[in-house]
Amino acid sequence: MISVNGNQANSLIQVRGLDKTYRRGNEDIHVLQGLNLDVDQGDFVAFMGPSGSGKTTLLNLLGGLDLPTRGSVTVAGDEITHMSRRRLTQWRARHVGFIFQMYNLIPVLTALQNVELPLLLTRLSRAERRRHVETALAIVGLSDRMQHFPRQLSGGQEQRVAIARAIVADPTFLLCDEPTGDLDRKSADEVMDLLQRLVNEHRKTVLMVTHDPLVARIAKLTLHLEKGVLVEAGARQDAAAGAVS
C-alpha cells in the first residue's frame, strides 16, 4: 500500500518527517516540510506538482544523492539518512536504479557498455556481466542495438537503454525523474509501457516524477507535492493497478 500518512509499518520505503531546507542568500527555502511516505515492493507511484515544488529534491533524498535537513528515509530496513557519503554510494549501487530526463548515457560507450556500468561495481565475471546486460537489453527490446552508440539511437531508445542500465543490477527500486520529459508522445508511450511491464511482470518498484497527467495515469497512484508534503489525488481503481496490489 502506498500511503502518505506515516502510519504504516514494514513498508519497503519508509519516509518520516522529511524536511529539506535550502539556503539562498539570507533566505531559507523550505522545500519539503514533514513529508511522510510509504511504498511497498511492486508499487508504481507518480509524483506531480508544479515546477519548483520539490519533486527532484524528493527523489534525490529517496535515492541517497542528498541528505535531508531533518527526518528519515528507511529502505528495506536500512536508514540511509545517517550513512556516510561513502556508504551511501555503495548503497546506491546496490539498491537504486536512476533514470533521469537527459544526459543519462555516456556518449563514448555503446549501449552494451553503458548498461554494463553498474555491473562493473559487482564481483560478476565478464561472461556473467555480458549475460545480465543481454537480458536487460532484451527486456527493453533493444537486443539489436547493443553495439550502437547513444548518438545512433533515438531519444526513446536512449531512455530505454537507460532503463536497461537502471534494472541490470536488479536494484530494490527505480527512481525516474521526468523520464519522458524530452520525448515525443509515441516514444513516451513506449517508455511508459516498459515501466508498467517492469512493475507488472517483474515486480519492480517504481517512483516517478512527471509533468504529464497521461503519463501519471499509468502509475498505480499519483501523489501531489503541495507545500512540502504529499497529498493523494485518488487511487486508481482500474484492472492494471488492481492486478498488482
Binding site: R86, T89, R92, A93, P118
Partner: peptide, 13 residues
C-alpha cells in the same frame, strides 16, 4: 553530467 551519472550509479568519488 557524465561524471555525475557515474556517481549516481554508484562509482565512488
Amino acid at each position: 553530467a557524465e561524471l555525475a551519472i557515474l556517481k549516481a550509479i554508484g562509482f565512488s568519488d
